[in-house]
Simulated scan of single mutants.
Amino acid sequence: MADASHELRSPLTVIRSHMQLLLHLPEHTIKEEALHISTVLKETKRMKKKLKQNLHNNYFTIFS
């Protein structure tokens, strides 16, 4: 479970830092901040994949 916690904390930290950058530059356009936005999307996709894997593994551990 500790490994799962770390696997989720890492992308959450990246998402949070990129969102903070976006908030500090409200005058920028979406086009100017596309890199930050794409990074957030990539990390949420990564986090979703990790959650799905962990839920799948835990399900089979519990019911095996």
Rank of each mutant, 00 (worst) to 15 (best):
H24W: 02
A34D: 15
R16L: 12
N54T: 11
H6E: 13
I30Q: 08
L51Q: 08
N57D: 15
Q20H: 05
Q20M: 09
H24E: 15
P11E: 01
I37Y: 02
H56W: 11
K45D: 15
L41R: 11
N58A: 13
E7K: 06
K52L: 09
Y59R: 09
K50A: 15
M1P: 04
T13M: 06
N54Q: 10
T44A: 11
S17E: 15
K42V: 02
T61C: 05
L51W: 06
E7Y: 03
S10E: 13
S64W: 03
P11V: 00
E32C: 01
E7S: 09
T44G: 01
I15C: 01
S64E: 14
A4Y: 07
N57R: 13
V40E: 01
P26L: 03
K31C: 05
M1E: 12
K42G: 06
T39Q: 07
I62Q: 11
R16V: 04
T44M: 14
A2W: 09
K31V: 09
Q53T: 10
H56N: 14
H56V: 01
L41D: 08
K50R: 14
E43G: 01
V14P: 00
V14N: 02
A4M: 06
L41P: 00
Y59C: 05
E27H: 10
S17V: 02
I37R: 01
K45I: 06
T13E: 14
L51C: 12
N54C: 07
K50F: 08
E7W: 02
R16G: 02
P11C: 02
K31E: 15
S5A: 12
F63I: 09
M1T: 10
E7Q: 12
R16H: 13
Y59Q: 08
H28P: 00
L12R: 05
M1W: 10
K48Q: 15
Q53F: 06
K31F: 07
P26D: 05
E32M: 05
P11N: 03
L8N: 02
R46M: 04
M1A: 13
H6R: 10
D3R: 08
N57Y: 03
I62H: 07
I30D: 12
L25Y: 11
E32Q: 15
H56A: 07
P26T: 02
K52S: 14
M47W: 01
N54K: 04
K42Q: 14
H36V: 00
N54L: 04
K42Y: 06
L8R: 03
I30P: 00
E7D: 15
T39P: 00
Q20S: 07
I62W: 10
L25N: 14
E33D: 12
Q53P: 00
P11T: 01
L25E: 14
H36N: 15
V14A: 06
S10K: 05
M1Y: 10
H6F: 09
K42M: 08
S5N: 12
L12N: 05
A4D: 12
M47P: 00
R46N: 14
K52W: 06
K42W: 04
E33K: 06
T44S: 13
L25Q: 13
T44V: 13
T44F: 09
